[in-house]
Design a binder for these strands. Sequence first.
DNA 1: TGTACATCAGTGAACGCGCGTTCACTGATGTAC
DNA 2: TGTACATCAGTGAACGCGCGTTCACTGATGTAC
Lengths: 240, 240
Amino acid sequence: MAEAARTPRARYREQTRAEIKDIALAQLAEGGTAAVALTRIAKQVGLSGPALYRYFDSRDALLTELIRDAYADLAAAVTAVAGTWPAKAPTARARLHGLADACRSWATEQPHRYLLIQGTPVPGYTAPADTLDSARAVLGPFLTAFEGARASEVAQSLVEEMTAWAGRDTSVAEWVQQHAGESTHGEEAGTALAGAVLAWSHLHGAISLEVSGQFAGMGHGGGTLLAAQIDMLADAFGLA
Amino acid sequence: MAEAARTPRARYREQTRAEIKDIALAQLAEGGTAAVALTRIAKQVGLSGPALYRYFDSRDALLTELIRDAYADLAAAVTAVAGTWPAKAPTARARLHGLADACRSWATEQPHRYLLIQGTPVPGYTAPADTLDSARAVLGPFLTAFEGARASEVAQSLVEEMTAWAGRDTSVAEWVQQHAGESTHGEEAGTALAGAVLAWSHLHGAISLEVSGQFAGMGHGGGTLLAAQIDMLADAFGLA
DNA sequence: TGTACATCAGTGAACGCGCGTTCACTGATGTAC
DNA sequence: TGTACATCAGTGAACGCGCGTTCACTGATGTAC
């Protein structure tokens, strides 16, 4: 899609679209989803309200694009980290930390975008269908990090549940194999899934506490907390 | 405050206030914070819009009261569990599970109230000052559960940070002593704090993933995931 | 290279909506003597 | 027990706001021959 902007007009169009999205993001940062208002965006771009409809079908369409962008951006950040393996992160534990840090950095640098995709669902707004794929793209590298892991006793029932899930939903099984290796079946797949889901839960807990400012006065908190959680997770899955 | 409702008029007043709050909660459940609208509440109670101002100073005042109620309610649920100790939960691990389950049940039974206090902060709305106390009331019993815990290596730096925090902020130190015992000082206090904060992060991660429906198709998920996390935490703090 | 036409960006006026909140007022319920 | 007054619950009209979105229209930019 980056092949656009051939003609001057198309280029200008892309430019304006980008400008609109930028302002929308600024409003999002300032007052949450509810504060994203076409009328006010138009005023800031220097256009009349109706003109925006040349660029986005509706307010929902604009929001959808912001959500899609955010997912893609986060997925890119995570994938970029995974791309440096094994050189920069020889052990599974180091990989987990790398992934977690990438997510945390991304989220704390732009909390509004994190909240947009992971915060309270917007009332009345129905997420685009490909949100599931996006989430899987983000979580994929975590699966890879759990390749060859061995879940400790306390995680067994979760592993069982995840194994059953992968057995039931072939798209999940394929997704696991794509990231954790073609030969990942049965309980191995369940283990990787359990690890990834646990990692996600850890991440979301630590990040959203930090992002919503619940660590005020507590020291830097966020980073230390997340690191501790990831280490606990690595311990429980026997990662070196 | 339960001594109100002496005169018929006062009783009726309390009744109407409660009815207003009930409808507000229903709107909250249906469409999030943004959907709580005085005009529509009035219509449902069978009053004219302005009449609501006899019962609440403003929309913000109403929201504030809902938030306060939710915190108090959650704190009560958690405290109730702690009240059954040591009979029903002889080990620290069992206590942690009990507390976690209580929080999770409370949240999954009324997701809108959980999101109200733990979800994305409402834009433009400033939380009442006593929110901090409320949060501490909820978290208190967790401190108790970590009495005598010994943090494993991976949690050391978090313990250090929390120790420093308790050393810096006397209100925190008092809070710890109140729940974990008068003689809880220095690193012991840091350990209890680290445990409680970790527990909260675990809880929030697992619960908010479940509550926002990210476990669709994954089996029951939520309970198993949370149980696994709590067990990992108990392991890391050497709890029996 | 010039002309005829299609596409596109943008405008101003307008619609209808629901919102929070204020105001002056009425009628019922309580209270003091 | 009765009367005079204060308090309270509730009303209807109104204000001003900003919102998303539609419509008919103008002028500029591209395209086909």
